[in-house]
Amino acid sequence: MRVAVTGTPGTGKTTAVEQLVEAGELDEAMDVVHLNELVEQEEFTAGYDEERESAVVDFDAVADWLAGREDILFESHLAHHFEADRVVVCRCHPDTLEERLEARDKPSASRAENAESEALDVVLTEAVEAHGADSVYEIVTTDLSPEAVAREIAAVVDGSRDPSAGTVSYTEYL
C-alpha cells in the first residue's frame, strides 16, 4: 500500500503524520517518509526559486527513489504528484491557513498565494486528475487537533474511511 498525504502548505499534514507515527497507529512494516526532508537530505533539487524562497524539486529523482517501494506513507505538499494507491488531501480554511503561515514567518505574498490556492482547490484538483476521485480522501483540518487528523489518516490507511473528493468548498474566501 502506497499512501500519499498532501495539501497546501499549512494544512497540518506534517504535524498529523508525526502524530500518527508517535501514536503507533501504523503497521510497523509501513515506512513513513517526509518528502521535503528527503529532497533536502538527498539533494533532489533542480535549482532555487528566489521569489518563493524554496528549492525546486527534481520530480524525476524523487519518483525514482520512491519506485518499487511498497508499504510506504509519504507526505509533502507535492506528494500527490507521485504514484500512490490512496491520496489524503488535508484541507484548511484559507483564513486559518494564512494565520498558520504567518506564525511560521512566511512572507505575505506566500501566505496569500497559498490561501488562494486552497480556496481554488488546486491540490485537490491535481490529486483527483492524477489518481481519480475513488483514490482521494479529503480531511478538513481547520478545527481538528493533530491527533484527530492522525486518526483520520489512519482510517484511510486501514481502509475504514470512504473516499471523498470535492466535499469542501472555500470559494467564499475569494
Rank of each mutant, 00 (worst) to 15 (best):
M1E: 05
V3R: 12
T6D: 03
P9Q: 08
A16H: 02
A16M: 02
A16R: 11
Q19H: 12
V21L: 07
E22F: 04
E22M: 09
G24D: 07
G24I: 10
L26K: 10
L26V: 06
D27P: 14
E28S: 14
M30H: 10
M30P: 00
D31R: 09
D31C: 00
N36Y: 04
E37G: 00
E37R: 15
L38K: 05
T45S: 02
T45H: 13
Y48H: 11
E51N: 15
E51M: 11
R52Q: 09
E53P: 07
S54D: 01
F59C: 03
A63D: 15
W65D: 10
R69C: 10
D71S: 14
I72D: 01
L78W: 09
L78S: 08
H81L: 15
F82I: 02
F82S: 03
V87C: 05
V88I: 08
V88W: 00
V88H: 04
V89H: 03
R91C: 12
R91S: 02
R91F: 04
D95P: 01
E102R: 15
D105C: 00
S108L: 13
E113L: 12
E116I: 13
E118Y: 05
A119G: 15
L120S: 12
D121E: 11
V122Y: 02
V122G: 04
V123P: 05
E126A: 15
A127W: 02
A127I: 02
V128G: 13
V128M: 06
V128T: 12
E129T: 14
E129Y: 14
H131D: 07
G132F: 03
G132S: 06
G132N: 08
A133V: 14
S135F: 00
I139W: 07
I139S: 06
T142R: 12
S145C: 05
E147Q: 13
A148H: 03
A148W: 00
R151H: 15
R151T: 15
E152K: 08
I153G: 01
I153F: 08
V157K: 01
V157D: 05
G159A: 03
D162Y: 03
S164G: 14
A165L: 06
T167C: 12
T167P: 10
Y170L: 10
T171N: 00
Y173R: 12
L174V: 14
